[in-house]
């Protein structure tokens, strides 16, 4: 018995070594090369859908979905996967703060973010669209976006304090519960016991226009559609892209920002 145990342990170790420390393959040159590689994305994001399209029939074998971007990028750095399909801005933040990463030149898709609502909640959609149009028109939305890009992609990301955001506490019109996934800087991020981010400040402005108190519910991204359809939250503001699939289960506001999906890879693994 012991002999068997010892034999199989040693066999296992060798097999593990052979698998885990296999040599690196040829370098990635373009997005086309990704079609046969191990990819990762955050669960429920458009990055996942794009990766599925890229991989085609191999998606069950080659695609790993993670709960958080930090996990996906850690897997990338540990060579468990070869690319993370994700939104450009959060990817740029990783590029700034973590060594040894690169973004592929080609853009995988261009898209727009919008606020998501429960299907048929037309009253709130219209009210939010009106408020959104107002903050777009008076330039305050652009100001917010500029401020965050500066803070997160330039230097000195500590310049934004959650205390400065007015959540309109004690408003007469009740509460506006917004669901988000606070691991998506510069759009939303949890700092201490409160939140910062483009989406958060935008929602704060909208809440003010609607005379409601802003309440943030921080959840996993793939739980958000469920939360809005069961009325747990009034709306989703989490850098969510409008897709035809999502439109079937959700109503969307007007777009508020344009975004891109890109492939984040290891710098040493990428040859232009």
């Amino acid at each position: 018995m012991k002999k068997f145990f010892a034999f199989f342990t040693v066999l296992f170790l060798f097999a593990f070594c052979a698998c885990a420390f296999a040599d690196e393959e040829a370098k990635l040159k373009s997005v086309n090369d990704l079609k046969t590689q191990k990819l990762a994305a955050q669960r429920g994001t458009t990055g996942q859908y794009i990766a599925e399209d890229l991989l085609g029939d191999n998606k069950n074998l080659l695609l790993t979905t993670y709960e958080k971007y930090v996990d996906a990028v850690a897997a990338l750095r540990q060579r468990k996967i070869r690319a993370v399909i994700m939104d450009e801005m959060p990817a740029r933040r990783f590029l700034n703060e973590v060594e040894g990463l690169a973004i592929m030149d080609e853009v995988l898709s261009e898209e727009s973010y919008a606020i998501g609502f429960r299907k048929g909640n037309t009253e709130l959609v219209e009210a939010v669209n009106k408020a959104l149009a107002e903050i777009k028109a008076d330039g305050s939305l652009d100001k917010i976006i500029g401020k965050y890009f500066e803070a997160f992609l330039g230097d000195g990301s500590s310049s934004i304090k959650p205390e400065d955001i007015d959540f309109n506490k004690g408003a007469k019109g009740g509460t506006l519960v917004v669901g988000t996934e606070a691991g998506f800087a510069p759009y939303e991020l949890k700092v201490g016991s409160s939140f910062i981010g483009i989406d958060i400040e935008m929602c704060a402005l909208i809440a003010k226009k609607l005379d409601k108190e802003l309440v943030i519910e921080n959840m996993n991204f793939d739980a958000l559609p469920m939360a809005v359809s069961t009325n747990k939250v009034d709306m989703i503001c989490a850098g969510m892209t409008v897709t035809e699939e999502r439109k079937e289960n959700m109503d969307f506001s007007d777009n508020y920002v344009n975004a891109k999906q890109i492939a984040l890879v290891r710098a040493g693994d990428y040859e232009k």
Binding site: K68, V70, V73, E97, A182, K190, E217, N218
Partner: peptide
Amino acid sequence: GIDDLTRAGQNIQALTL
């Protein structure tokens, strides 16, 4: 959506990468 101990760790991860 509860920020328990595990989630707090994940929130720090998102903050500092």
